[in-house]
Design a protein around this nucleic acid. Sequence first.
DNA 1: CTGTTAGCGCGTTCAA
DNA 2: TTGAACGCGCTAACAG
Lengths: 347, 347
Amino acid sequence: MTVTLADVAARAQVSPATVSRVLNGNYPVAAATRERVLRAVDDLDYVLNGPASALAAATSDLVGILVNDIADPFFGIMASAVQSEIGGPGGRAGGERLAVVCNTGGSPERELTYLTLLQRQRAAAVVLTGGAVEDAEHAAAVAGKLRRLADAGSRVVLCGRPPAPGTDAVALTFDNRGGGRRITEHLISLGHRRIGYIAGPQERTTTRHRLEGHREALAAHGVEDDPALTVHGRYDRRSGHDGTVELLRRDPSLTAVVAANDTVAIGACAALRGAGLRIPDDVSVAGFDDLPFSGDAVPALTTVRLPLYEAGARAGRVAMGKEEPPPGDVATVRGELVVRKSTGVPR
Amino acid sequence: MTVTLADVAARAQVSPATVSRVLNGNYPVAAATRERVLRAVDDLDYVLNGPASALAAATSDLVGILVNDIADPFFGIMASAVQSEIGGPGGRAGGERLAVVCNTGGSPERELTYLTLLQRQRAAAVVLTGGAVEDAEHAAAVAGKLRRLADAGSRVVLCGRPPAPGTDAVALTFDNRGGGRRITEHLISLGHRRIGYIAGPQERTTTRHRLEGHREALAAHGVEDDPALTVHGRYDRRSGHDGTVELLRRDPSLTAVVAANDTVAIGACAALRGAGLRIPDDVSVAGFDDLPFSGDAVPALTTVRLPLYEAGARAGRVAMGKEEPPPGDVATVRGELVVRKSTGVPR
DNA sequence: CTGTTAGCGCGTTCAA
DNA sequence: TTGAACGCGCTAACAG
């Protein structure tokens, strides 16, 4: 039915072992023989059987990339960067590796499910992107999975995610706290004192770190941290809209809104506009991440730029063993304040 | 080292076959025995060996999803929809299927490479999203790959892509031509006569179909189709910006711009604003797709809504055999005109 | 309902 | 430099 290695061997008049060797290029093979084999492969339209190969070699060409939301460019950009680094030569049997982007939807259970699936597939490497869920039990379960993946030979890299204690996974962490601090400092320096904050989901590390940075800035400049000025929601536009409506209800005198990320900020802008407020004349708005659309928003969004592509690419290289892990297996990636048109002096 | 099926069998005091049976749930097993096996699996922290399983069963739990650009929500939305339908029960060994999102970057070579990789992995199904490249040689190569995938037992579904002649792949096609016609008719009905068109890459089906719809509308209403009013570019913001600058240079009197998609439209808006023109007072702008940000743009974008999520979900179900393929294996998915604030009567 | 027996297709020793 | 033989871990008949 389907053509196998043996068929190729027969046609090239060599042994199956020889065919395997030319395909993997791991052993010396006479040039003439290799020619013959390659021709047979071509003639027969032979495609290596991945599972069989992986079984025999006890490793596969799969590289898993876990993302919270594949429809969100924040993750899409990192995923495409990781993927750009894992292709090319270096893989077994033909040189190409298969990037497997897994969409967890932010669900802890699905995260674990996918890690199991990748372990089952004997993935060559696994890259986890985005913040982690702050739940002791889940964190322990993830750590266990990561440890077992590593034991089985998979390289594990965290991208934009804090280190996982109890594992030796390499972590490229975003400096969310520092970014959060800088964006709020920017607003304070403009003269804002009543600053609303629309945070992400309560239990995520990214949410907490950005919020902590915000509070650090308030404290450092002696600005009151009114709990009523912080609301939580998801990392989407809707949350920005609804959160802003709520903040405005609680304190109509606020002069600035900091959003958990750019998508949330866009929703905030919509809500402010809906309330008849001008940006930044009446209320300033700040985001986080600097996604592609942020510069095109009207007004262009002041935000913290995270080098998503660069971080993803580095994670990919580390996962492939093409780059040394950072000292201590942890690197912090800073975000840069980008001041545009959505922030100004308070009215 | 790693625990195998045999280890589980030994601990549960049953044969390996029985363990396999409870794991796959394909054969009747006594409740007591199943209990015992499941406990042993748990005790030993056993994880099925995917490659071995796939080798023996001659099929895998992998489902491939090909996308042109994973960082583009257009594809992200479809991919997440496909993926939402392929999980759950029905897969082998534990019920979960692994969605493999493959990023071709729009490159024909990578498209072929990924198809080979998926064939190599004996993927259970493959979903190709987005337009096809219009190159006879490449089309033939893809058709050949798809045929071989189907022969090997993979189900092949095209989502938002025209049928592939010479294959029996199911196609859920977007009515790009009809959408293109409706958006331009909308502008004509508002009174526009000098309408610029920023098309996508020359050689893609999506580009051609949308453009043809545009021209049909012009012809149907006796509006001159000036070749100078059409420019080509990529499906990104930059192309929208640059294309608009060029169109403005060629004809400063144009009153409307139709963009290849919403992302391009956003770029067009930025360029118009940069030229000191108001939208829609001076120039109307229309997009295509209705991505999440389109309603939040300022002004909110008039566009053609494509039911990306629904189409992706349907493709996923068909790929899983959960839904019957449409009659003739081809279904056309219509886009709906969404009139918002970016279009108005010409100045 | 369960155990026994063969492979699935390939990589990798060990000899030659 | 090449071939022969074995086994990777699992599933799918076939018995019982």
